[in-house]
Design a protein around this nucleic acid. Sequence first.
RNA 1: GGGUGGUUAGCUCAGUUGGGAGAGCGACGGCCUUACAAGCCGUAGGUCACAGGUUCGACCCCUGUACCACCCA
Length: 951
Amino acid sequence: MSNTQTPNTENNAHTDSSTQGSSTQDNSSQDKTYQPGNIEQPLYQHWESQGYFAPQGSGDPYSIMIPPPNVTGYLHMGHGFQESIMDALIRYQRMRGKNTLWQVGTDHAGIATQMVVERLLAEEGTDRHALGREKFIERIWEWKEHSGGHITKQLRRLGASPDWSRERFTMDDGFYKAVQEVFIRLYEDGLIYRGKRLVNWDPKLKTAVSDLEVLNKESDGHLWHFRYPLTDGSGHLVVATTRPETMLGDTAVAVHPEDERYQDLIGKTITLPIVGREIPIIADDYVDKEFGTGCVKITPAHDFNDYEMGQRHNLPMINILDDTAHLNDNVPEAYRGLERFAARKQIVADFEALELLEKIEPHKLKVPYGDRSGVVIEPYLTDQWYVKTQPLADKAIAAVEGGDIEFVPKQYENMYFAWMRDIQDWCISRQLWWGHRIPAWYDNDGKVYVGRTEEEIREKHGLADDITLRQDNDVLDTWFSSGLWTFGTLGWPEQTEMLKTFHPSSVLVTGFDIIFFWVARMIMLTLHFQKDVPFHTVYVHGLVRDSQGQKMSKSKGNVLDPIDLIDGIDLETLVKKRTSGMMVPHLREKIEKQTRKEFPDGISGYGTDALRYTFYSLASTGRDINFDVGRIEGFRNFCNKIWNAANFVLSNCENEDCGQDGSNHYELSLADRWIIGRLQHAETDVEQAFNTYRFDLASQAIQQFFWDEFCAWYLELSKPVLTGDDYTAEQKRGTRRTLVRVLETALRLAHPLMPFITEELWQKVKTLAGTSGDTIMYTEYPQADSSKIDDNAIADMEWLKEVITAVRNLRGEMKIPPGKKLPALMKNADDTATRRIEENRAFLIKLANLETLQWQEDSEEPLSAKALVGEMEVLIPMAGLIDVDAELARLQKESDKLEKEIKRLEGKLNNPKFVDKAPVEVVNKEKEKLADYQYSLKTLANQKSKIAALR
RNA sequence: GGGUGGUUAGCUCAGUUGGGAGAGCGACGGCCUUACAAGCCGUAGGUCACAGGUUCGACCCCUGUACCACCCA
């Protein structure tokens, strides 16, 4: 192996410009320790101002569409995790020469945004109704301009590199038009209809909400047993219900068709108490015989299951509530206007008075709450717009089955299929003011017209001017618009160049919790309109939790703010932050106590790179990501390590000849060849990890290479060459060359994961390493070159490491201070060992901190501490210094270990079944091991008796 | 009730076609060795949840059980 390690910068198309813009070009003032606060923001501002994040214009396209964060939102750990992953992918592909687009933007978040502004209005003593729809929407836009999109500013703190110049908002004109267009075309294709169905109704916000906005909480309720008298007077049956008030809307009682208890009741009727309505007793196998009494009251207008049953049996649907969940005019007069929970009490009391209350049992049940409003969600019968999903779902299933879209990890495909195969029509209308208004108009007869504008509709349908049309008041579900995100952001319905180039996107990075709500819908809508998939791969990551695996939530007080981890926060501010808005005093105290205990000194600022690296190290295939602050500190230390390693390299190479003149006037040492080979292995590992979305393995491979190999061994090995007098100029040049080039390459290798520190340091080493360019962002990503792997060098070096470790062990065991230089004797070396020792004396002496290194003839062996490296013995003469007991104990421990292994191996090798059936290589390997162990044991036994003789 | 994922060192987690159990953090002992004390050197610590099975051989494959988490009903 000769002059190797070329970072291939000559192939790099991006780095030819000679203009230099980095704001941190001052090579002379490297901080003594890593100070992320001093480098990150200036670098980011520089990158952004130079337009580095935009597509490069050449290379194969690679694109990622950000899952648009809520415009009212603030960055949380989940965002931090997700954005870090996207940024790593984008930076990696950008460095691999791809034409990359990271499309960024925010979501208008109908309910959340409307609520934020309504709260502001409330503070001013007014509300949206007083303001009127138009003015209210103006206020929202004003709010959005001044306070919205806070999260995109925070995204910059993470070092994210999306193309900010293309930032989109789902309510922007272009996107608005695309949403409208999609609605109209789906309507024209017969895939959108208006219908009266049960929806999740939020009686506080007075709108339909999606399943995602409903949280089912387990709570302690009751099971009330009511007697319903048979109409023919022959007795009564008993129904059990968790919601007594809905009995006012009952239109049947159901039993299981095979329930012997009730066979004679089927077909009869009961007369509903209080109401006086005669309703049938029907048979349906949905009924659970074991639950309650086996008789179920059926309220089709107020329960999803009952609704289904009502459909099957053509039952009337009686809606008993108004849109604020008060009883309406369909109930007896005495109950009208009662709030639903007051009505419950009243009904129970009245049943009791009528002696129709059989009993009350405690019962655990799931109660649906609106996650925005906090009130109990009501299944409610209303007119809404629906998307007919079945035809769309069939194609969406086929796209995944056929491999056009791939989920990573694979098992999420099952989750996707399960949901898709059981899909319901999708309610897309919302009774809000903020959102994409439904492009439908009604005439006075209630006839509906769908079109782009009122004018277009009048023209198309030949409607005279005297016919008044009014537009539908509702807006579309936010998920409807975000379903168009991949192509809507690229200019659709225009077939723009951007759309042609970057669609389908390469990968979607998202959490498994929104596979149904967003991923599935994007796939359906994109297949329909773009006749293509929205993305080829869905990388599904876990959810970030606290170190105990608890979900981070304000009420638990365990929330970590990514920005606090970057910048640091003092204890008092942190406590205030975590307890602010906490109304319940004991909760407040608990959180304060727990925070003071967990962070007695607050949180120190670890910097973005350390935070990102922590995320990557946790990004394995699991579903939960438990974020332990201890980890981030470790990675901050890793950053510091990189910083100081660079400092070492710079101080030894600046103003020196580092062999970058293109000539061959340098010579590589064993250590040089070793580290170059190890670098290739690291590059392979990292590439493999990126290809499989295993960021944890990528981060581990880089850290292991940089810290355990480059820093712990190679930098130490370079010292004797750099400072020793026995080395030629060619040798020194070779080592300096290797130092800077390996460092430069390692920085590029790590850049997608830790963008700031790598850029900062790369600017300082690039010239020394014989490369150039404006930014590390556009350098070429390191690719392994197997011709640079010198297997012999690696074998030699690994063996030498063992020798050095053996001496260090002895030193540690003998409690000899690391500073004291030791004489060492080597004995029983074969030719290879002899060569390795002789060729690398200087390395051994330096790293094992030896005074002398000599060969020992068998005859006159001095009293020594002894270790084995293969068959070679490493001796540290210890005359008079040996702690006999300690040394004997150590040797005994070693022997015990060996004996145990020998016993195991002998048993294995004496088993004819093993010897006969196992592959020869495996058997031979075991035999060799046995022989080695036996030899070692013998050597140790000798040593033991020698030491024992000292007693 | 159905489904999915998980159970490996004190903690957080790796373990790639079954062939001598790993990392980081923490613990313990020793070092301010001229890049780095945010560091260096060394040590200890695991019946791989449990019970069966397949196999010469199982953390790994199969069956069952327990517990945890999530999804659906």
